[in-house]
Nucleic acid binder design. Structure first.
Lengths: 223, 223
DNA sequence: ACTTGTTTGAAATGTACGTTTGAATCACTG
DNA sequence: CAGTGATTCAAACGTACATTTCAAACAAGT
């Protein structure tokens, strides 16, 4: 009775960890089914295809995280005064860390998967998230706009993607970076530490003044 | 006489464009040799393996760019006073744009390749660049350290990788992002525009104050 | 023109992949 | 306990890949 449900879960659990470590393209169904101790054909039986398995792995987290974020955004949007940008970004922290309650190392795994999703399969995840959770994302963009009224829409667009880049790249490389940090600075860094390091960086970057004339140095020798 | 040299160049040219567009893993030698109009075996004959071809593609740019950067760093290091961070970052602009003289769309292609290199083949490019151009990178880190004396080494390490993430992710997704920007804001953005948009963002992010106590909102209800 | 070393060509090799198939096994119901 | 639908299993299928092979074509020196 629990065998069939167990198979799906075992596949999802094995897949998410392998995907997070090595990326989607570089993880084969054979690796997944071997690790999950299920038959190779069961992935196609239960999920249809590898692509749909990837979506299922991501959905397991997204369907928990996004509604949580949505309600947090609503709270901030209800306030009369615009929120400070660091407070807007800090909204992500609690819902993200709550993923650890769903699954051991849930936060870390999800963020790594997110990183893989954006870098491995170009465009697919971006479309998927926008399609399923566009409403929630719009609320976030609105909040950022309200905190940074000096930023034109197009500038904000680019900066939010710069920020997404920092997050996604950091998470995809998280293991490698944590390893270096440990070796070079004797500093053990968990995912929560990285998140809290990211916030000031992202806040300052996103809210930076628009025309930074110091971009071109005031050297008079330049042609 | 020019046939053999031409073959190598034709392979490199075809490979770099396909790699930049689709990534290293998702570009096959068959696609490359077809586009280059050379025989499939010639890649292995001239470069040994696909891996070595990837290195050759990257090296063609790096061996031009890195010495240029190195000398620019030396100029800034020679100054008696610490440089402002935006000036340090702006050092990249000229050498990067000079890649357009070497090759049409050279800057764009190289930056996309860099993005692919960091996201596709985890760790390899990081090792490769560190191994071949570690000296130059150290100069850059030193310059940033001098401009941001308030930042502990470990904080700087993370922030530089956050910055690398913004760059690499933006460049890997450059086509998709430019497309969205064009559709949503009627705004055509070339690679130079993106670079100049990045500098204020990166400057502010890297130099952000360290302990941002607003990171955690003053909610007393947290357990 | 013949020889020598380099480069190209077409074909084959072996491996890994995602997916499909059909029989065997299981869990449950009437 | 026979029957039925869902699940598992071993095996195979077809495709795509990087790489190798070896003969043919080529360039250059003597």
């Amino acid at each position: 009775m629990n065998s069939k449900i167990n198979t799906q879960q075992k596949i999802l659990d094995a897949a998410q960890n392998l995907f997070a470590e090595a990326g989607f393209n570089d993880t084969s169904l054979r690796q997944i089914t071997t690790k999950a101790e299920v038959n190779l054909a069961s992935v196609n039986y239960h999920f249809g295809s590898k692509k749909e398995l990837i979506q299922a792995v991501l959905q397991r987290y997204l369907q928990i995280l996004m509604p949580r974020l949505d309600q947090e955004f609503d709270v901030l949007l209800a306030k009369t005064k615009p929120n400070h940008l660091p407070d807007v970004l800090a909204v992500f922290v609690k819902p993200l860390l709550e993923l650890n309650n769903i699954q051991r190392k849930g936060t870390r795994t999800f963020l790594q998967l997110l990183g893989r999703g954006y870098t491995d399969v170009q465009g697919h995840l971006r479309w998927f998230i926008n399609h399923h959770y566009g409403r929630t994302l719009d609320k976030f963009v609105l909040l950022v706009q309200q905190s940074c009224p000096h930023l034109p829409q197009s500038e904000l667009f680019w900066r939010l993607h710069f920020a997404l880049g920092s997050i996604v790249f950091t998470m995809a490389s998280n293991d490698a970076l944590a390893e270096i940090a440990l070796a070079d600075f004797d500093e053990a860094v968990d995912i929560e530490g990285v998140i809290h390091r990211l916030i000031p960086y992202l806040s300052a970057g996103i809210a930076a003044p628009v025309f930074n004339q110091t971009t071109v140095t005031p050297t008079r020798t330049v042609a």
